[in-house]
Simulated assay, not measured.
Amino acid sequence: MNNEQIKQLEKELWDSADNLRVNSKLTAAEYKDPVLGLILLRYAQNRYEEAKIAIEATIPEGPRGKRAATQADFLAAGAMMLPDKSQYEYLANLPEGEDISEAVNEAMRLIEASYPDLAGILPKNYQELDADLLRELIRVFNKDSVKNLKGDVFGRIYEYFLMKFSMSGAGAQEGGEFFTPPSLVQLIVNFIEPDHGIIHDPACGSGGMFVQTGYFVRDHSKRVVNEAIKVYGTEQKSNNARLAKMNLAIHGIEGKIIESNSFYSDPHNLASKCDFVMANPPFNVNKVDKNRDFVKTDKRLFSDVGIPRADNGNYLWIQPHPCFMPVIAGLTVRSSVTHAHK
């Protein structure tokens, strides 16, 4: 599938899904998480089917035939081993009389039980959607054109939906709280070339910096992403942190996202450990409490500069130092001395 075909498919899927919402009582914010959850489930099914063929071909014949594939086999292949009742085809073929909302909720619960890193992350509120709406949504992502998608196309679709939801203001006072436009993220990533080591985003939103870094590693260094980099994100908003974890899962990127406020914490304990730091931080945040003990002793602040006098968070994010390279609306750091600072 070429780039124009992908763009057309993105638009068709969005238009179909959004038309369903328009004809329902749901707001974009109420609709966002269930839709993104279905995209993740469809992607997981596609990766499962693709990996299953490859795994079964590599399992050697034993005295009693081939052993059954394991979760470890699927993890090594970059896929989830889906329980039977979590498979998209199972949900798509569920008889009309079955409780479709509970079936999707159960599918999400079973995945979380199998993969602790996703515990508490997947949406499980499908009972809030009208049953007919949910069934039609499942059909939208069960078209042959979607079933046959491979590689990074699902990642693009997920990001496209994130962008469209951000433009609608779904789940945030401003879309920029959870989504930075890909063009800006690409500019930042291409500028600092984060192709190895520890990558940190202290205001990670839905994790776009990590996704673009993954693309950069694959396209430029040709290395396996999870061998080349380790990603760590901090995000204050609970829903955004869940979106980031789902985004990493969609793209097959291993990482750790912690819900916390970067003004008052360094939850990953990354001071002086990062190879690259990049963020599109919340600008012009006033009333940051600089009297907190953590801020006064924050190792990420340079001792020769100290706590900024201005009552504005901008100066906690950017301080003058040779390793800093401010870029446009985002903050990027390329550090030859591997400092991690805001």
Rank of each mutant, 00 (worst) to 15 (best):
N2Q: 10
N3I: 10
E4Q: 12
I6N: 07
K11I: 10
K11Y: 09
E12A: 13
W14P: 00
D15I: 07
N19Y: 04
L20R: 02
R21N: 01
L26T: 01
T27M: 03
E30T: 05
V35W: 00
L38N: 02
L40Y: 09
A51D: 09
I55Q: 08
A57W: 09
I59V: 13
G65H: 08
A68L: 11
A69Y: 07
T70A: 06
T70C: 08
L75W: 04
A76P: 05
A79L: 06
M80F: 14
M80E: 01
D84G: 03
Q87C: 11
Q87L: 10
Y88M: 14
A92G: 03
N93W: 01
L94H: 07
L94P: 11
I100P: 02
V104N: 01
L110F: 00
E112F: 01
A119W: 03
I121A: 01
Y126C: 02
Q127G: 07
E128P: 00
L129V: 05
D132M: 08
L133W: 00
R135K: 13
F141N: 01
D144C: 03
K150W: 00
Y158G: 03
F161C: 06
S168R: 14
G169H: 06
A170Y: 07
A170M: 12
F179Q: 00
L184K: 11
L184P: 00
V185K: 01
V189A: 12
G197W: 11
I199Q: 06
H200D: 07
H200M: 14
D201A: 11
P202E: 11
A203R: 09
F210A: 07
G214V: 10
Y215P: 03
V225T: 13
N226M: 09
A228R: 13
I229R: 08
G233H: 04
T234A: 07
T234M: 09
L243V: 04
K245R: 15
L248Y: 08
A249F: 02
I250L: 12
G255P: 05
G255K: 05
K256W: 06
K256A: 11
I257C: 05
F263E: 04
K273G: 04
C274T: 13
V277A: 08
P282F: 04
V285E: 07
V285N: 02
K290W: 02
K296C: 06
K296G: 08
K299T: 12
R300W: 08
G306H: 04
P308N: 05
P308R: 06
P308S: 06
Q319W: 05
F324K: 13
M325H: 12
M325R: 15
P326V: 12
A329Y: 03
A329H: 08
G330W: 00
L331T: 06
S335I: 05
S336W: 10
K342W: 07
